[in-house]
Amino acid sequence: MKELALHILDIAQNSIVAGATLIRIGIAEDMQRDVLSMTIEDNGKGMPSDMVERVMSPYTTSRTTRKVGMGLPLLHDACLAANGMLTIESVENEGTKVLATIQLSHIDRQPLGDITGVIVLLFSANPNIDFVYSHVRNQNSYIFDTREVKELLEGIPLNTPEVIKSIREMIALNLDEL
């Protein structure tokens, strides 16, 4: 895993498995405080507190196909490597919030990578889940909300190839301008 965007794609899978109907992904780049923070917040089934304590261990997983789960440990490692930290808050039947903070200028900070591609992939592969993506860079911000787009397109599925292409263009252009 070499890009932060891929970590986000990976952590969001946990939310999908947790039965979330709304996933919020937030990225904030604050050059003044020299902090990059990323949040993935869902309204899925959450975890009991003993699970939250164990979840950073690679030998903890909810899956049945094998005994290891590397998603959170890898992100944890990426945070620690760049003077950051990873916190997880979870309430059963309400949802889970994963917050990663990383030193923006740290030499070992992974590049953000293709975040537009990740967001596009998430909503096009999961038509029944809504996504809210917010990106703050210093004083500027951009928010993309699939619920808004769904309402606007009145029933045209977001995973229609032409729609995917246009939304990708829209997100990329707006991020460029931040």
């Binding site: 787009v149 606007l152 032409e162 246009s166 829209m170 252009l173």
Partner: peptide
């Protein structure tokens, strides 16, 4: 033209349809 805002996206609705 490039799609930049939700309004641009809305204009393309007929095309998508």
């Amino acid at each position: 033209t490039k799609v930049k805002s939700l309004a641009d996206l809305k204009k393309m609705k007929d095309q998508f349809q």
